[in-house]
Amino acid sequence: MDNEKYLKEVLKSQTLSFDGPELAALQQHRADVENLLRDHFSESSPTIRYGGSKAKGTMIRDAYDLDIISYFPNDDTAAGVTLEDIYNNVRTALSKEYMVEQKPSALRIKGNSKENLGVDFHIDVVPGRYTDASKSDVFLYRSSGEKKRLKTNLDVHLNHIKNSGVTEAIRLMKLWRTRNGLSITHFALELLVIKLLKKRQSSSLTEQLEYVWKEMRDNIDNLSIEDPANPTGNDLSDLLSATIRSTLSYVAGTTLKGIEDSGWEAIFGEVEENEDNKTARLKVAASSVVKPTKPWLDYEKGMV
């Protein structure tokens, strides 16, 4: 299989089917979250929409997520007087049903029941307030960084990525990020890939990826990203911190070396099989284990 065909097969294996269990679970959680927010903020009539990789067309099986944006009208104060109040009130509402992890502008929801404690539902709830009655731009609260307020626009973000002409490269770079445990956010990685490939939209996927990695390896300190919804107003420098830059550069270097030494399969692995027969294959794998081990659980280390 040639390299281009291989990468297309990787992308195919990373595509979630519309009637698959992952998307069905996402839809169910989305409905539950929307009902919860509408009940809790019935006076405020928030606008609730999809964002994240599902809306951008950059979803991958290994790291799919869904942003549920919950924007309140500009003249509403029932959901909170300040942006921070809105963020905290949405967090409180979600905490009734979920374990909530605070992110700089979003709230990640996870399971809090006995059966699914800590399970990541791949859903970020993003609270915000429209800047005016046109319901276009929004202000988001930001819990970290110098500025506590971001001005942004969901549609500008979605269009910037959907119409970038490089969504396949973005999906593969997201897979690379996940496979290597990198801490750069999906948003920052998407912006970086789009910027680097601005003049290389017609290049092959192998050329696009190698170019991005070479830039990361050789030129990481000179790379920057801007928020397309507010290029001069939102400082995204903390999304590309010194630690993130050095890690990206290092892993990009090992990736290029891996391609040179062993080819593309060294980077994304063999194309993974679909779910059919996976249980049977896992059982075969278990039966061939030479030294079986049994797990235990130490109550003294955090489980009571």
Binding site: V119, L297, K301, M303
Partner: peptide, 14 residues
């Protein structure tokens, strides 16, 4: 965040 932090899955809450 794939494996529940539960007794039956042998994961502690961290």
């Amino acid at each position: 965040g794939r494996i529940p932090r539960t007794l039956d899955r042998h994961m502690n809450e961290k």
